[in-house]
Design a protein around this nucleic acid. Structure first.
Length: 586
RNA sequence: GCCGACUUAGCGUAAUAGGUAGCGCAACUGACUUGUAAUCAGUAGGUUGGGGGUUCGAUUCCCUCAGUCGGCACCA
């Protein structure tokens, strides 16, 4: 998808289109007051205060019409510069502009405005030279948006749109948006029988259907296999714990608003766990450890429950329960670097094997001025942050630093990806933690026989299995690699009277080899069965007819491909067994 | 949670200026015996998301609850 913001030409065009939008809105709704109208990745928007008037999607065509009218008139867009005082005078009746102007940098003595016809807006620019260049645009959606992004503030109305230089580009873009909707994991999840939700069970509580659980199991085996090779030990812990546990960890103080409320049983208080760290801390603390034993790596596919705002729920990408591919690595200070590096390498390895190519690293640091959220120990924080930075620089990874995004207990490295529809999110994470081991009084005995506090690395490679399935479905458009496909092979006999016996033999052979195979023996035409095979995204459709029976061969067509391949039966079986075993990607 | 829209059969949808609902696919039955994205015919399937109100009459209008979707805010 075209990133409008990063394209200088399109960025200017879209920003000018935002002004055009504002002008049209002003014509239609003279009371309108304007906040800001920036360019974003997907185009532009403008935040508007319309008082008691509420816009809906039905109003957009009308606004578009007015925009076209103004553009057709083709007024030049003229820049002029004024002093701060003049600006304050000019916009004295507009509280939003006054707010913007008065918060401007001291050094900014000159303020620029852009005028097109009867409309002037405060703006840094740049803009295109004339409104007549704004032809190929579309208003996409309208929604509420808190003023300055603060929930305590008034909600303004935000209109989104996008603008291109040619009608072809606009059309192509709109088509792309449509296609993205088609590979939304919520649609694929329904169409392919992966998961369901039920009003009666409750929102944000997805249930995996047989097809979905196959993908789940395969992914779980895959990542656990990798972890075992790296010396991880897997455990199983309960999805709730006493409130004291979370008071000890600090989560109760720092994370309470994201937890389900506490419940009381026999005078004791419990909470559904939002994460697994405290349980794993207890497991580490269950025995005495020597420096020789470290690192100790405790892993679990662990179920968590978080109270997510209802508006944040999104299929299996974000629910109120999910299973983390979690692990806690207990290490000495000296081992931080190598162990962190090992985690980063595991992430890179997994992404490579699964052919995930669109992602970026974010190093989330604390905001030193936020004394409430972050554990107050400057030395510890500086230490931790510098350690991570150094490892990343040594490995040579590209990353951006984010101030104020760290967990309350330490800095973290996140891997960010973009879904088909919606905002970027974190897929994998690795977090450094000097804090929890202290709070739980964890220790190991060093060479000199002294007690030391270990350092903990929290890490999740597949993030949550749920979110990972969502992401991977969208990445692959539902056409998963063979090893992950719920049904791997679909056998289609041409005529049940003559070919069913041979087809059944093949079916049983593959079944015995633990291949997930389907035999479509319905009395239907081949074309009909082929269509269903493709719609269900089964990787291999096998046609068995006279030709195959006579020569002891099979003919297959891969899902999404046109050509048919004929080969000896045994050779085919070897080929697909190998493809599954090596987890070949498409 | 906030702003807005939406909710009709398993799925995708149509309709009514208020007079209790059509269609396609899937399902079922029968015929066809099939060579790579839909064979033909028939049958059945709906308290139009739940509750309440206005009305002689509500799927349509109003209120309310629930869910879904688009954003905002929040976030693995």
């Amino acid at each position: 998808m075209q990133n409008i913001k990063e394209n200088e030409k399109l960025s200017t065009l879209n920003h000018s289109c935002a002004h055009l939008l504002a002008q049209a809105v002003k014509h239609l709704y003279p009371e309108a007051l304007f906040w800001v109208g920036p360019v974003v990745e997907e185009g532009f928007y403008y935040d508007i205060d319309l008082g008691d008037i509420t816009l809906t999607e039905e109003d957009l065509p009308n606004i578009e019409k007015e925009m076209k009218k103004i553009a057709k008139d083709g007024k030049n867009i003229i820049r002029h510069e004024i002093s701060k005082e003049e600006a304050l005078e000019m916009f004295k009746n507009d509280p939003y502009k006054i707010d913007l102007i008065s918060r401007m940098d001291e050094n900014e003595t000159v303020i620029s405005c852009y005028t097109q016809g009867d409309f002037t807006d405060l703006c840094r620019g740049p803009h295109v030279s004339s409104t007549k260049l704004l032809k190929n645009f579309k208003l996409l959606k309208v929604s509420g948006a808190y003023w300055k992004g603060d929930t305590n503030n008034k909600m303004l109305q935000r209109i989104y749109g996008v603008c291109f230089e040619t009608p072809e580009e606009l059309e192509a873009h709109l088509k792309e948006l449509e296609e993205a909707k088609m590979r939304d994991h919520r649609k694929l999840g329904k169409d392919l029988g992966i998961f369901m939700t039920s009003d009666l069970v409750g929102k944000g509580l997805p249930m995996y259907l047989p097809n979905g659980y196959i993908i789940w199991e395969e992914l779980e085996n895959y990542i656990k296999g990798k972890e075992k090779k790296l010396g991880y030990q897997h455990v199983l812990t309960p999805p709730l714990g006493s409130i004291e546990l979370y008071k000890t960890s600090g989560h109760w103080d720092h994370y309470q608003e994201s937890m389900f409320p506490k419940m009381e049983v026999e005078g004791e208080e419990f909470v559904l766990r939002p994460m697994n760290c405290p349980h794993h801390m207890m497991i580490y603390g269950n025995s005495i450890h020597s420096y020789r034993d470290l690192p100790i790596r405790i892993g679990e596919i662990a179920r968590d429950c978080r109270y997510e705002a209802s508006g944040a729920l999104k299929g299996i990408e974000r629910g109120r329960t999910f299973c983390q591919n979690d692990a806690h690595l207990f290490v000495t200070k000296e081992q931080i670097k190598s162990e962190f590096e090992s985690v980063v390498n595991l992430i890179l390895e997994v992404y490579k094997e699964l052919n995930i190519t669109e992602y970026r690293f974010e190093l989330s640091l604390r905001d030193p001025s936020d004394k409430v959220k972050y554990y107050p120990d400057d030395e510890m924080w500086n230490n931790a942050e510098n350690t991570l930075r150094k490892v990343l620089d040594d490995i040579g990874l590209d990353y951006v630093e984010k101030i104020g995004e760290a967990a309350f207990y330490g800095p973290k490295l996140d891997v960010q990806v973009k879904p088909a529809v919606g905002n970027e999110y974190t897929l994998s994470t690795c977090q450094l933690d000097f804090c929890l081991p202290m709070r739980f009084n964890l220790s190991y005995i060093d060479k000199e026989g002294n007690k030391q506090t270990p350092v903990v690395l929290h890490r999740a490679i597949l993030g949550s299995i749920d979110r990972f399935i969502a992401y991977y479905l969208e990445e692959t458009k539902g056409l998963l690699p063979l090893w992950l496909s719920p049904v791997q092979i679909n056998i289609i006999p041409v005529n049940n009277n003559f070919h069913l016996e041979y087809a059944t033999k093949l079916f049983n052979k593959l079944k015995d080899l633990n291949v997930r195979v389907n035999l479509d023996d319905r009395e239907e035409k081949v074309g009909y069965k082929m269509r269903e095979s493709v719609i269900q995204k089964i990787p291999y459709a096998i046609i068995i007819g006279n030709n195959e029976v006579e020569t002891n061969t099979i003919s297959y067509r891969k899902c999404g491909k046109e050509e048919t391949t004929n080969m000896p039966l045994d050779e085919f079986i070897n080929q697909i067994i190998d493809e599954i075993k090596t987890r070949k990607i498409n």
